[in-house]
Nucleic acid binder design. Structure first.
Length: 489
RNA sequence: GGCGCCAUCGUCUAGUGGUUAGGACAUUAGGUUUUCAUCCUAAGAACAGGGGUCCGAUUCCCCUUGGCGCUACCA
């Protein structure tokens, strides 16, 4: 049985890189009828953020990624843990780590290290200054057991380090990179248990992946260099090693690892800006993967069917916001209008527009459905509908091929004509038929009439067409706006 | 500094020992349109460099260069 996991640290929010890692782990598990686990790696007590874990799980749920086993949010909105290999939160597993550390100590695979942080800092400084490889020098590696026992009993602070072999190589076959090889003597003795009694990532990840029966470790490329340490731990314990797949990094436009400095990186930010989860997921899936042909639009379900770890790229991929916008536009358009309106409602509410008639709001949203690329854009671009006293810029109001006098006269006649339509017949089709018919009949320029009309109704340089807007505004408001515009010329 | 990973249009990518090196986003130009957007049409745009192997390399190998990652009692 295939089992994968996503193992975030609850340091605040879900990073889009994290989303992609979670997505690929999830897809790989689902594709193979396997199990997807969520484990929480909270061994760094200083970086914990209140509510960070809930936020991460909510973001995953928003994206459509649900957890088979591990930490989740239950129906009562509380954190729950499900599965046989719990607890799934590392801070609740300390006893297990201590047991395995002890085993390593007993077998002489690990040793207590009493080096003060200051000494380590000096050591590194010296190494850097002299352009030597940095790393622990093994000062405590050969302290004899009796002495270290004595020092520990006397209360001396210490960490536990694993003994890396000083010779040989460690190699493994990565599912995306192929064979990767490292020289053992260049890897220093990693701390596995910190002085506060918490394990380091390197130790906890190995113990947990083993105990939880993880078969495939799918994680970011930044871990590839520390894989030999993990492999050595598996060897020390005589545990079967899982398969590894190191995913290419998602990059900033300058090709560095995607970071907050250069744009939004939190999944929540994209939600807040009005991106649809389907679009983000589709986009992020294509950062480092493709189906091998020209198809680009994939639902999560379709991705599950098509995903193939062998088709994952080796090189990092730049996060291209314009392409995301395009994806979002595609999904926006594909959405039924009522559903789209429903999704827009909270965004309207955020600008103070509450309790609007739903059917009418639907017609407002329809104005921008095929034009906007985010939900926020829909709201922003339809703001003029709700604005009470529009201000007009005369240079826009008067069409470039016309004069103020002409415009004034045209709008006046237009208004009179519009007044002949009664409220029941006030809809886009009728308006269009009437006005276009009149323009044709009187042999006027289309732009001479429609342009000022559109600006009078919207106050905008650019907007949807005049008939759609008029229909949404209704007769009274439309005539009112034209009158106001008239007064401005 | 050391180690590792990577390298096709600006970006995401397809692709093959022999192709006019394909698509998408973006860009530019034209067309449709009452503005903008949409839509349609077209164009420009890439195999990092140098050695091999081979009849032939973008493709296989090596080197160089460049980019990135790691190098913590962070993950």
């Amino acid at each position: 049985m295939i089992k994968t996991r996503f193992a975030p640290s609850p340091t605040g929010y879900l990073h889009v890189g994290g989303l992609r890692t979670a997505l690929f782990s999830y897809l790989f598990a689902k594709k193979n009828n396997g199990i997807f686990v969520l484990r929480v790696e909270d061994t760094d007590r200083e970086r914990l953020v209140e509510g960070g874990l809930e936020n991460i799980i909510r973001s995953l749920q928003w994206a459509g990624i649900f957890i088979d086993e591990g930490v989740d949010i239950g129906d009562d909105n509380r954190l729950i843990q499900k599965g046989e290999s719990g607890p799934y939160i590392q801070s609740e597993r300390l006893e297990k780590y201590h047991k395995y550390v002890q085993e390593l100590l007993n077998n002489n695979h690990a040793y207590p290290c009493f080096c003060a942080k200051e000494r380590l800092a000096e050591l590194r400084q010296y190494q850097e200054l002299n352009k030597l490889p940095t790393g622990y020098d093994g000062a405590c590696r050969d302290i004899d057991k009796e002495e270290s026992a004595k020092r520990i009993n006397s209360g001396e602070t210490h960490v536990i380090r694993m003994k890396m072999p000083r010779t040989g190589t460690t190699e493994f076959d990565d599912l995306v990179h192929g064979r990767v090889e490292f020289q053992n003597n260049l890897i220093d003795d990693q701390v596995i248990l910190k002085s506060d009694g918490y394990p380091t990532y390197h130790f906890a990840v190995v113990v947990d992946d083993h105990l939880m029966g993880i078969t495939h470790i799918i994680r970011g490329d930044e871990w590839i260099s520390s894989t030999p340490k993990h492999l050595e731990l598996y060897r020390m314990f005589h545990w079967e090693t899982p398969a590894f797949a190191h995913l290419p990094l998602i990059l900033n436009p300058d090709k560095s690892k995607l970071s907050k400095r250069q744009g939004d990186v939190a999944v929540g930010d994209y939600h807040d800006k009005g991106y649809l989860p389907e679009a983000l997921v589709n986009f992020v899936a294509f950062l480092g993967w493709n189906p091998g042909d020209d198809r680009e639009l994939f639902s999560l379900k379709e991705l599950t069917g098509e995903f193939n770890i062998e088709r994952v790229m080796k090189a990092g991929a730049v996060f291209n916001l314009e392409k995301l916008n395009w994806y979002n536009q595609q999904y926006l358009r594909a959405l039924p209008l009522t559903e789209l309106t429903e999704l827009c409602k909270p965004f309207f509410a955020a600008t103070g527009l509450n309790d609007l008639d739903f059917d009418w709001l639907t017609s407002v949203v329809a104005l921008e459905k095929d034009r906007a690329s985010t939900l926020v854009e829909i709201v922003e671009n339809t703001k003029f509908i709700f604005t009470e006293n529009l201000e007009y810029d005369q240079t826009i109001l008067v069409w470039k091929k016309s004069t103020p006098e002409q415009t004034k006269a045209n709008l006046k006649k237009l208004r009179e004509l519009l007044n002949t339509i009664d409220t029941q017949n006030w809809n886009k089709e009728k308006l269009e038929a009437l006005i276009l018919g009149w323009i044709k009949e009187t042999e006027q320029g289309v732009g001479d009439i429609l342009c000022p009309m559109r600006v009078a109704l919207s106050g905008q340089k650019n907007s949807p067409g005049p008939f759609e807007i008029a229909a949404v505004l209704g007769k009274e408001k439309s005539l009112d706006r034209i009158a106001r515009a008239l007064a401005m010329i």
